[in-house]
């Protein structure tokens, strides 16, 4: 029985019982008794054959990614509609943004995605140490993004622009801050996954947790790829 050790926070909270759960009075077939569930801490994952290729990472993470993508798609569309409704406020607001910091942020996130991709490649070849350092580099680039973004916010707040200033700044702050928080969540996931990579929890055969974390981080980068032109470039 294969041992998929994806990210396993202490499972004291809910050791998964993996017995077929009948709990009916009678027993099934000739199994000795249905009642005493042997609590096996192992985590078995059902994977039906892999003829049609395999989704990297965990389906649970992908459902989370799809939900986030849907939420942001709605946010982007509403932003775009409001930009069309109030072109002058948005034009004036966008002019106030610093394109270079936007560009730097995009380059930082692209590079961190690159490092994460390298890390997954490394672990696939069994080189966990190299993968660990690449993940650290990715987190570092993420930190660069955070710093640039905080400076940007400080600058525009000093100019007196707040989330309630006008319709542009309401959308600007809401969209970018919401993405900012997702970068932080992504970095926490990357740190978590990096520690497990360091502890050799991932092997070329069991890499699902790392792939899930990587896919989440690439999604965060994907969102910024749309945000950058939408907010900074197109005005």
């Amino acid at each position: 029985m294969n041992q998929t050790l994806s990210s396993s926070t202490p499972t004291s909270l809910s050791p998964e019982s993996t017995r077929l759960d009948t709990e009916a009075q009678s027993s099934i077939g000739n199994s000795m008794d249905t009642e005493t569930d042997s609590i096996t801490a192992s985590e078995t994952s059902v994977s039906k054959g892999s003829r049609s290729g395999r989704l990297p990472g965990d389906l649970a993470m992908w459902i989370f990614i799809l939900a986030e993508l849907t939420a942001f798609a709605l946010l982007f569309s509403i932003y775009a509609v409001n930009r069309a409704l109030y072109p002058d406020i948005f034009a004036e607001g966008q002019a106030g943004l610093d394109i270079t910091s936007g560009l730097a942020n995009t380059l930082a996130l692209l590079s961190s995605s690159y490092f994460v991709a390298r890390a997954v490649t490394s672990v696939e070849h069994g080189n966990n140490r190299k993968g660990f350092y690449e993940l650290l580099a990715a987190i570092g680039m993420g930190a660069v993004y955070l710093v640039i973004k905080i400076l940007e916010y400080k600058h525009s707040i000093e100019l007196g622009y707040d989330i309630t200033t006008n319709v542009f700044y309401q959308y600007y702050y809401l969209l970018t801050a919401f993405h900012f928080l997702h970068v932080i969540l992504g970095m926490i996931i990357l740190a978590f996954v990096a520690i497990k990579t360091r502890k050799k929890a991932y092997t070329p055969d069991s890499i699902m947790g790392l792939e899930s974390g990587a896919c989440y981080w690439h999604m965060v980068d994907l969102l910024w790829l749309i945000l950058f032109p939408l907010v900074y470039v197109l005005h």
Binding site: E16, S17, T18, R19, L20, D21, T22, E23, A24, T44, V46
Partner: peptide, 9 residues
């Protein structure tokens, strides 16, 4: 779980 007997997992 009770009426379908599907695996708890």
């Amino acid at each position: 779980i009770k009426i379908t007997g599907v695996d708890r997992e």
